[in-house]
Design a protein around this nucleic acid. Sequence first.
DNA 1: CCATCTTTGTGCACGCGTTCACAAAGACAT
DNA 2: ATGTCTTTGTGAACGCGTGCACAAAGATGG
Lengths: 255, 255
Amino acid sequence: MATGRTHRPATRSRGIPEATVARLPLYLRALTALSERSVPTVSSEELATAAGVNSAKLRKDFSYLGSYGTRGVGYDVEYLVYQISRELGLTQDWPVAIVGIGNLGAALANYGGFASRGFRVAALIDADPAMAGTPVAGIAVQHTDDLDRIISDNGVSIGVITTPPGAAQQVCDRLVAAGVTSILNFAPTVLSVPEGVDVRKVDLSIELQILAFHEQRKAGEDAPAEGEDPEAPPMRATPASRKGPDGDMPAVMPA
Amino acid sequence: MATGRTHRPATRSRGIPEATVARLPLYLRALTALSERSVPTVSSEELATAAGVNSAKLRKDFSYLGSYGTRGVGYDVEYLVYQISRELGLTQDWPVAIVGIGNLGAALANYGGFASRGFRVAALIDADPAMAGTPVAGIAVQHTDDLDRIISDNGVSIGVITTPPGAAQQVCDRLVAAGVTSILNFAPTVLSVPEGVDVRKVDLSIELQILAFHEQRKAGEDAPAEGEDPEAPPMRATPASRKGPDGDMPAVMPA
DNA sequence: CCATCTTTGTGCACGCGTTCACAAAGACAT
DNA sequence: ATGTCTTTGTGAACGCGTGCACAAAGATGG
Ligand SMILES: NC(=O)c1ccc[n+]([C@@H]2O[C@H](COP(=O)([O-])OP(=O)(O)OC[C@H]3O[C@@H](n4cnc5c(N)ncnc54)[C@H](O)[C@@H]3O)[C@@H](O)[C@H]2O)c1
Ligand SMILES: NC(=O)c1ccc[n+]([C@@H]2O[C@H](COP(=O)([O-])OP(=O)(O)OC[C@H]3O[C@@H](n4cnc5c(N)ncnc54)[C@H](O)[C@@H]3O)[C@@H](O)[C@H]2O)c1
């Protein structure tokens, strides 16, 4: 789960648990598919299977929104689509700005699934002067110098960061200063933001490393032979005897 | 958290909690940065700040790996980098195959941060015959027909799916049949896989919807006026009276 | 109007994850 | 050696999330 919040100890928003909020889009997707097939109602069991979750969990999730089901029948698909959309704030339009139009930024800009749910790419911003004016996905890239004005003019409150990691914090600060209060960060960096600003991160590298961990464990189970002893490290830099593995360089340790 | 597992009720692998595993890459990144600055040791407090987590949590996380710190001093950076890398299985090479070389797949293939941690793009696979042979990021795209052989020949156990959602399950099945046991899915689809196969998903749309939820809540707090009454829905399709909002089409509800 | 059957909504228990707080361990100075 | 000071490692408490299991609600048929 490339999912992460920044600070705020899991505040329960309007009584809806964070874990539930994270699943609502999943339900919405399944419900939309049913809606397109003109299915009028669906039981918690069916919908849960489609969304890949436990049916009791689904019912409890929905109970936070209100009693929208009918016992003995199930949930009205259209009505539920509307209620979840409203709860997630998808009945309104969300202008989004993407900063850093490189490989990833351009791919996101070209992504059609963006607009399908009320999210509209309102601006593309890059620091490279050569890119200014170049159209990407039908939108002219604008220069970072105008970031503040671009955000304000378009009423952008959600920003997407796809710059190199070194620039991410600076870009983040500028976005926040310009009025952005939600950030989706693709750069592998820990962003620090003031209270009231939400940050979610998507980190491909972390996902792969988590997979590698389990992959290694699976392989280890198949072949439990060979030095399975978790101790006996090949090299241990005893901190007491020598300061560092590579010479006695004096510590630069900040305060 | 664009993070999600498929089934398996949070098995505690080798005594290391899942939540801890998910944070190890974060620590590793911070430690690598310190290592490059030749910092010999670091305290839990400093490292926790750099990684954006609570210091007690970090110490507890490390305690699952063993007692690698020195009281009064902190942790040896190089040694900890090695231990975490080993625990995550990053001391070995992981050949990865990307299936679906479109906007996103190509961006991932071009991503340098991939190789930095033992992950190597071993193969690019696409169903479009016109793409076969075309080099992307210096690697020739291969056709889906050879998927099975490609996976086997390269010993790929981690697959990345960046196809359209409609093709994702089919591609997943083929990858699993060919021997892949870990899948990173970018398509907005719920994948079903046999026991023993790990799936993690990255879903941009879900992340944005979660941000929108909180964004809406923030806006609502500022302006608590106007019909704040959470009830009084504008339109309610009473399931008892009429079957669907758009006509009396007979239900197609599957069993 | 009553009986039956389906499915919701939720009380409850349990386990995982987080955080506090502190004793013990060790570095370092004297 | 002894004392002080820093920082780890972890016991314990707490809160959140999950899933079971079931009573109540309502649809449906007679
Ligand atoms: N490409 C991927 O598949 C991928 C995957 C995971 C993570 N990431 C991360 O996403 C980020 C972008 O990756 P990429 O491959 O697109 O890199 P890229 O180098 O192709 O693109 C980066 C873009 O950001 C622009 N930029 C640099 N500094 C800027 C600033 N201060 N303000 C505005 N724009 C600035 C550059 O001009 C460039 O166009 C990186 O942090 C990378 O680690 C990328
Ligand atoms: N582009 C984005 O920024 C973005 C963001 C989030 C999610 N996604 C998801 O990622 C996926 C890919 O997005 P995209 O924008 O790159 O789409 P795309 O259409 O640009 O690329 C899809 C590629 O998959 C190939 N393909 C189709 N069927 C295939 C099959 N059966 N086997 C192998 N290859 C097949 C196509 O030939 C094409 O090259 C989609 O599911 C999309 O919803 C994309």
